[in-house]
Design a protein around this nucleic acid. Sequence first.
DNA 1: ACCTGAACACCGTTCAAGT
DNA 2: ACCTGAACACCGTTCAAGT
Lengths: 208, 208
Amino acid sequence: MGRRNDHTREELREIALQAAEELVAADGLDGLSTRKVVTRIGYTVGSLYMVFRNLDDLIVQMNERTLDDLGKQLTVAVADQPPPAQAIRALAQAYIGFALTETPRWLAIYQHRLPEGQTVPDSFSEKVAGMFALVQQQLALLCPCRSPDDITLAARALWSGIHGVCILGFDQKLEFVGGRSIAEVTDSLLDHYLAGLMGLGYPLSQQA
Amino acid sequence: MGRRNDHTREELREIALQAAEELVAADGLDGLSTRKVVTRIGYTVGSLYMVFRNLDDLIVQMNERTLDDLGKQLTVAVADQPPPAQAIRALAQAYIGFALTETPRWLAIYQHRLPEGQTVPDSFSEKVAGMFALVQQQLALLCPCRSPDDITLAARALWSGIHGVCILGFDQKLEFVGGRSIAEVTDSLLDHYLAGLMGLGYPLSQQA
DNA sequence: ACCTGAACACCGTTCAAGT
DNA sequence: ACCTGAACACCGTTCAAGT
């Protein structure tokens, strides 16, 4: 018993997160357990708690890695600096593409809920903010005359909307209207929202 | 032991679902368990399986009741037949209102995932379809010249978008940009999307 | 027919004990 | 210092046994 030192602390963290990702990819977040993780890496339950505070901590760290991967995809989508309207479309497509290819890991980001009162670490929020900044940046290029406040609001509305299409699209429960692909619905949202944002001086509520 | 007959099958179902709703309202879907439900209603574990196939079945039935409540709220929101643009806004506000006041039960609808391969019963899908029809109907009134296909697509895009704003708004993880309320972001989405839908003959992608 | 409670196979987390 | 494995308090589900 005890003191094997097969792996450094950091190595242990790495293989545990890898195992967790594989388990989630195979069976979804609900299929993840501490005992499955340690069995997969050849350790016993207790040792997990040397590296992670608890299962929630492990999941948050796993989700941070998923955010990193997602962020990379978004970054390459706008790497060749297309015009802003196309860039926004490319960002949306990259988001959908990631959700499509990495569905369980992507879902885990939103499925996991910390116990009441606990919040996600700053590093997590920063990654989310970084991705969000990509959208905001393109929107600012698209609408140079709008105030920063307007841009922030619009970016949030647009990105939340795209996320909504994705999340409902993947929820077979909500597969209410057949036929339409996630990409089609997203295009509708993008087309009309951006047209409205740029085309009219005043929002609907101030007309009539 | 055995044969108490304190309650009929239907009564047992009712008090079990009620207990489940109270548990979810208090501690969220993760705080729900078969054993807590039966303890709360004064029965033992086994008896739950006389009325529900398993815990997933109980949750689905509980979520159907939540959909009923939500549907009622949406219906009253358009009961006095306001003009379509206002009706759509009222539907969105009713949705947000329900999410705000019944957060854990509302969240449970989306949080719960059936095991791989299983699907939700038809009665569930029908309720979702019914709510969705409310939006579609108003959108059809707003844009009489659009094809039914266009309307379906637009309704889906718009409603998914509003849902996205809600779901990210309630996720403190994603509270990336401070200051903006869910209602504000929804208004931005509605204003610009509807303006774009009605104001321009061609979507952005077909311009320039 | 209804209901119990023991049984089984799982959980997350802790911690004394071993090297 | 690292790691084990038993222990504890939970799970969901089944089913023989009782009335």
